[in-house]
């Protein structure tokens, strides 16, 4: 199994480095204490619009290892076709790596598999967003035990350097991008954080 996992993790190495998007600079956020709770909650609403969007949520499926197909381009919500399972590895290393199809360069062709210059994969189990409410995801994102032990500033940094996240705003073809821009999303994270990471009830 270790060999399988290694193979899966090295899948991207089969393909030469493509021109990856450069690391995105994290904007300068407001100082703690100058952002009201109301402004923080307004920022959270915009954050929720992103994290609940199909471009993000379809692969944030929690304990399930089945990516989802949902959103306008899919017609109805259902698990990824062809009985695709990402396994415990979250990259399909146990049987069929995600990179068997999601490999190389992103495709604009309708119904073709998208790709980024990194392993295509599901989000960690703890980052369960698909079908979850705004309060649930909000509490998850401010809990270090569930957010990868990150401060809000580190959440913004994570967005800056993980190219699979960048794809949500540039999915290509007729895929609907996540709302706003990567930059505005990082700004919202910083505003929400500076306001004390308030969550809706």
């Amino acid at each position: 199994m270790r060999a399988a996992l290694t193979r899966g993790l090295l899948a991207a190495a089969l393909i030469s480095p493509l021109p990856a998007r450069a690391e995105v600079q994290v904007p300068t956020g407001p100082a703690v204490g100058i952002v009201s709770q109301q402004e923080g909650l307004e920022a959270w609403d915009r954050i929720f619009a992103v994290v609940s969007h199909p471009r993000c949520a379809n692969c944030h499926v929690g304990p399930s290892d089945r990516p989802m197909w949902s959103g306008d381009s899919y017609g109805r919500t259902r698990p990824h076709g062809m009985n695709i399972r990402a396994g415990e590895s979250r990259i399909g290393a146990e049987t069929l790596p995600c990179a068997t199809c999601h490999l190389g360069k992103n495709s604009d062709v309708a119904h073709s598999p998208p790709a980024v210059p990194d392993d295509w994969r599901l989000a960690p189990v703890e980052a369960h967003w698909f079908g979850q409410s705004a309060p649930t995801i909000c509490n998850q994102l401010r809990d270090p035990a569930l957010n990868g032990d990150r401060t809000y500033a580190e959440l913004a940094e994570h967005l800056g350097h993980d190219v699979i996240l960048h794809w949500a705003w540039e999915p290509g073809g007729t895929r609907e991008p996540a709302p706003g821009t990567l930059h505005s999303h990082m700004e919202d994270i910083l505003v929400w954080g500076a306001a004390g990471m308030p969550c809706p009830q």
Binding site: R7, L14, I15, T100, C101, L103, G104, S112, P113
Partner: peptide
């Protein structure tokens, strides 16, 4: 578009859909 698998080949032993991989990569 990598949906059917008829084009499957191996790259260093791993199955990939050759219709959707650019040769230069």
């Amino acid at each position: 578009i990598a949906q059917c698998g008829a084009c499957t080949v191996h790259i260093d032993g791993m199955a990939v859909r050759s219709c959707s991989v650019e040769v230069g990569a």
